[in-house]
Nucleic acid binder design. Structure first.
Length: 518
DNA sequence: TTCTATT
């Protein structure tokens, strides 16, 4: 059995501190499961963990720092993962208290929905308690209802970056194990984590994550290994690059969704150039956002909370039913298997909770009516592709749509002050911020329109014009941003963007007084 | 060929 001893993860605050425990590589011979292979500290014996019993309907009791509850200067903040979503702070407390006095324990909640994220941060008063807890708990026990073992490890915030030393390894062959990957990367530095990505069946997806202890090590692995060889059975040479950040993953998912739009009419492929231009604009936009945000996190108005992104990613848009306009063969479109059941139930009441805003008497309901309702006007018809698409987008809707419905949301008191989306009754952006979009797919409603433009900035309003008689989309609409740069980015990326057989026309909305001399 | 989550 192979055993590789490694030094402990370096801590940001004490880079010089000698390793206080060693990490052991669990290699082949050890029963490898589909779990990521981690470099686990030696196990110590601790009392059998008694799982806390969730208490129904009780309020969370956050444990906050207080006097007499001082923490070590070098205390380690731990990230706790794989927590059942029905466990709150007070439920978790007993589990962790056995390793020492807790300084702070916070279950992470979605900022907007208050939804339990299934993870928490934990800081003990004593550094040593954290180490004990990690050794005793990490990957050692699976909490009720969870399919993976609990995670107890230093929070990302405890190590600088974290991402700048984590590599994505692609184009592995599916037979390669964690150990194979480990061996491959071992020469370049200290490997803290090595995970082969696997599907539910445990089969390798042909890629892996390798985390080095330093950026430099990671960089050197890239320099030497990337493209250096082609694994047997792989379609191209080995890919070694820094892993995506969450933001990049978000962008990737959006790109994938965009790609899926082409499925509305499989006969026409999305031209790569257009796709690429959208992707590129997304990247630029995201980069701009990141640069403008000191914390490095996306502005709430633009960011998709990770949990919701996850929801999007979990939905199979490929299962879209044929649209009424463009029936497709069974070839590329399996029967609609997506149902509302695939969407967290919280979504529906929120999205449906909108009340109509009365149309203006000027005969222009569109731009005047912001988020009149969260549903496309055709939603009462039999299921359409857009219905399903809407479900796919529900996570985003839940986020974006929630603001106008503040008084209707069941979790209203957990909502923070709504960000700029809530310029409440503002319907049209400043000049240069309002776009006219033509050649929309018939199935697109306000929401789909909004989703398509959200990546470029804060969408103040989105409206697809409907034919009053037929209740069908007139295939054009308006989108308003809160700033001209977003509008320009959207034009750059989306004008000429092909969806099905059509190409979008995206241009600035003509100002009302455009033709009027001043 | 990008993971279960990181205030």
């Amino acid at each position: 059995m192979a055993r590789f001893t490694q030094t402990e993860t370096r801590r940001q605050h004490h880079p010089q501190q000698p390793a206080s425990s060693s990490l052991v590589f669990i290699g082949p011979g050890a029963p490898l499961t589909h779990q990521p292979l981690l470099l686990l500290p030696h196990q110590h014996q601790y009392p059998q963990i008694t799982l806390p019993k969730p208490m129904n309907g009780s309020e969370p009791i956050p444990i906050h720092p207080e006097s007499g509850n001082m923490k070590d200067q070098d205390a380690i903040k731990l990230f706790i993962g794989q927590i059942p979503r029905n466990l709150e702070e007070k439920d978790l407390k007993p589990l962790f208290e056995q390793f020492g006095k807790i300084h702070e324990l916070t279950v992470l909640k979605d900022r907007y929905t208050g939804m339990h994220k299934g993870c928490a941060f934990l800081t003990y008063c004593a550094r040593e308690s954290a180490i004990k807890a990690q050794n005793a708990l990490h990957e050692q026990k699976t909490l009720p209802g969870m399919t993976r073992p609990i995670q107890v490890k230093p929070a990302d915030s405890e190590s600088r970056g974290g991402k700048d030393r984590k590599l994505f390894v692609g184009m592995l062959n599916k037979q390669q194990t964690e150990e194979d990957v480990y061996r491959l990367f071992e020469p370049y530095g200290v490997i803290e984590e090595c995970t082969v990505l696997r599907g539910p069946d445990g089969n390798s997806k042909g890629c892996a994550f390798v985390k080095f202890s330093t950026h430099t090590e990671a960089q050197s692995a890239i320099g030497t290994l990337h493209g250096s060889q082609t694994m047997p059975g792989a379609s191209s040479s080995l890919v070694v690059k820094f892993a995506d950040t969450d933001k990049e993953r978000t962008i990737r998912r959006m790109q994938q969704m965009v790609g899926q739009f082409g499925i509305f009419n499989p006969a026409i492929a999305l031209p790569f150039s257009t796709y690429s231009s959208y992707a590129h604009a997304l990247m630029q936009q995201q980069a701009a956002i990141m640069a403008a945000t000191h914390g490095g996190y996306l502005t709430p108005s633009v960011a998709f909370p990770a949990t919701q992104i996850h929801q999007m990613g979990a939905l199979n848009i490929n299962s879209l039913p044929p649209t009424p306009m463009t029936p497709v063969s069974g070839l590329s479109s399996p029967p609609a298997s997506i149902t509302t059941s695939a969407v967290p139930s919280i979504v529906t009441p929120i999205v449906n909770g909108f009340t109509g805003i009365p149309h203006q008497p000027n005969g222009h309901p569109a731009v005047e009516t912001v988020y009149t309702n969260g549903l496309p006007p055709y939603s009462t018809q039999s299921p359409t592709a857009a219905d399903t698409l809407q479900q796919a987008f529900t996570g985003v809707q839940q986020y974006t749509a929630i603001y106008p419905a503040t008084t209707l949301t069941p979790i209203g008191q957990t909502l923070p002050q709504p960000p700029q989306v809530i310029q409440q009754q503002q319907r049209e952006g400043p000049e240069g911020c309002n776009l006219f979009i033509y050649h929309l797919p018939q199935e697109f409603g306000d929401n789909e329109l909004m989703q398509m433009f959200l990546p470029f900035g804060t969408v103040i309003s989105s409206k697809v014009f409907m034919d009053r008689a037929t209740n069908q989309s007139k295939c054009f609409g308006f989108v308003s941003f809160d700033n001209p740069a977003s509008a320009q980015a959207a034009i750059q990326a989306m004008n000429g963007f092909q969806i099905g057989m059509k190409r979008l026309k995206v241009q600035l909305k003509r100002p009302k007084d455009a033709s009027r001399p001043y």
